[in-house]
Nucleic acid binder design. Structure first.
Lengths: 151, 151
DNA sequence: CTGACTCCGTTCGAAATTCAAACTAAGGCT
DNA sequence: AGCCTTAGTTTGAATTTCGAACGGAGTCAG
């Protein structure tokens, strides 16, 4: 399988990974959720080649994850903001952060702390069942084919 | 920044992405959670170069996400199984699947359906606050530096 | 005991990606 | 006029990734 065929697979992982499953793309999205919006800022934070940043931002914009918005005229300058589709990636980013916190944090604890505004507590993300509300672990899940699985 | 420097960043995303933030790695992990364990099976399902599969499996094994276990002698053959650290990635995979289901499922619905054994219902993963149990969205979260953020 | 088959990799050269550094562009400031 | 800012694009060399062929360790059939 080649990379561009991934998006055509009848698998939601494959389709998602085709859009965001890239090292630098995930780092860009992290920064987006931290409020970074400008090309220059992405470059400074990541320290990678401008061409890569331009390419990834364009890809995310084409996919509707980010949108480009003018923040000034004379000269026109744009910033990149998460769309609703992009905001939907929040659980993905939080899940990745949490895995890193669990397994790679040093003795000082995690690099970033997340506070839930609604309850005011520092928290970690927990994955629950949409139906019963209980926490779901890998062993609790049974997978079967859905109608969307056209092979 | 180069790729190998990512793991050294004081950022849980960077550290996680250094391990699993790769297209084929994520696809391999999907298959692991679906019960695939043998080299041959990974190859057939992904249809990619054996060298890539060998490389990614080795990397995941070195990182303690998978472990290699003999399932027969004469000749010795190994299968790859998720460790506890690997099982901890379940929320990450589920979050990615769910995003794909939301935005890329066709009119027939998602390719795979997940059932929660405990309650017997088909479900989607929901991300809740560990403290108050309420659903968390991107706008509900406030981020601040933790002690682990050594810059 | 020879040859075919299974499963799990490794090796190799070609193709694609990534990189840093230079270049473009459009306007502002002094 | 000359330099600064922000946001890219271009370029050619270095690095990765890929597919296809090869290797190895053992089984099985004749």
């Amino acid at each position: 399988m080649k990379w561009n065929e991934l998006a055509a697979q009848p698998c939601s992982i494959a389709r998602s990974v085709a859009v965001v499953g890239d090292r630098w793309t995930l780092m860009l999205l992290r920064d987006c959720f931290l409020g970074v919006r400008r090309f220059e800022a992405f470059e400074q934070r990541l320290g990678i080649s401008r061409s890569i940043i331009a390419d990834r931002l364009k890809r995310l914009t084409d996919e509707g994850v980010l949108r480009k918005e003018a923040y000034q005229d004379r000269p026109v300058r744009h910033e990149y903001r998460l769309t609703d589709k992009g905001l939907d990636l929040h659980p993905v980013i939080m899940a990745i952060v949490h895995w890193g916190d669990l397994h790679y944090a040093g003795k000082d604890g995690p690099p970033l702390i997340h506070r839930h505004r609604a309850c005011g507590c520092d928290f970690t993300p927990v994955q629950d069942c949409s139906e019963c509300g209980e926490t779901v672990t890998a062993r609790d899940v049974e997978v079967r084919a859905g109608l969307g699985l056209a092979l």
